[in-house]
Amino acid sequence: MDSTVRKLSNGLHPIDALDKWFSDGVQLIGQATLTAVKTVKYALAGQIDLPEVFRQANMIGVGSLYVVGVTGLFTGFAMSLQISRELAAFGADTSVGGVVAFALIREVGPITAGVMVAGRVGSAIAAEISTMMVSEQIDALEIMRVDPVQFLVVPRFLAALVMIPALSIYSMTLGLAGAIFVAQAKSNIPPDIFLDSVKQTIVGSDFVTHIVKSLINACIIIFFSCAIGLHTRGGAEEVGHATTRAVVWTMTLIFIFNYIVTALSNLHTS
């Protein structure tokens, strides 16, 4: 019995594995927080390399248009198909637009865009920075007295702060367009009825929630994948490990913080 338990968890007793996972997590959260504090300090001091910010914005934003667009569109298709069928059964066709838009703007939009960007950008950043770490490029920076946080994290952070909310809104807009199309095609709900319902349901604070969530996603993706990259030690084999770790952590945290913001915003409105 004992031996099978040990085998299952890669040589570690489950309790030890949990303990290791927990202490790794605490350490990583500390590292990401320190990275964040330093980054904000540099950004506020105006020590910004603008051309590099644009290069990163292009990498993060333009490079993600395709994946974020396609996932947004299909999310809209699926939600509209499901919700319009359910509501039509209750004779509530006229509220389909509101329900779909509400879900897309407040919940599904930020999450799908966040997860796609975490997968694409978070992993790329962790891979790039951990490669720089194991190939001693970061050591070279330190010898030249260049702070890697200022050089690498600040431009990525500023680019993400603009591009991730923009991607999120873009994904949500495509999702809504997809939803209108499917509602018309599958449940005969005309676009104007759909949009009327959207207008009646959605208020300004729903957009605020959307933006807040996408800004938090940007912070999670940048600070965690950069911190993971900057704390990679060892050889080339560690790059793969860092990449996986960045994806797992950023995605998990995006879900957790999505819930926290939803809970807080409901507290506020009720």
Partner: peptide, 13 residues
Amino acid sequence: EIGLVFQGSALLN
């Protein structure tokens, strides 16, 4: 002022 030539060059790619 120290100059270090790294084993793997370590140029910023």
